[in-house]
Amino acid sequence: MRILCPCCGERDAREFTYCGDASRVMPALDAEADAWAAYVWGRKNPRGPHEEYWQHAHGCRHWLRVTRNTETHEILSVLLEGPWRARHEAKDPR
């Protein structure tokens, strides 16, 4: 696979580390155990578009929010995650 890193350009997937389902939202640290349980163990596991994290571990080390079709492996979008997300989104109207 190839991933278009917004920071580095298109790179082979072997430069990236897969970091799992990005549709989950981490609860607050003091949230109830049930909320955390749903976060830790619950997965929608869709067949089709899937929001997921990839880290450009052997590149800029940015975290990316990638939407990829789990059936075809087609990548639909790649966004920077983390502190740079707001700036990236302002620049990229998608």
């Binding site: 799992g20 389902d21 163990w41 619950g42 997965r43 929608k44 596991n45 869709p46 067949r47 789990t70």
Partner: peptide, 19 residues
């Protein structure tokens, strides 16, 4: 491998599995 899709038909949206 189709567990998540089949169980979604029964209204179970989340399970502790990934394909």
């Amino acid at each position: 491998g189709s567990t998540s899709q089949v169980m979604a038909l029964a209204g179970i949206e989340k399970l502790p599995i990934e394909s």
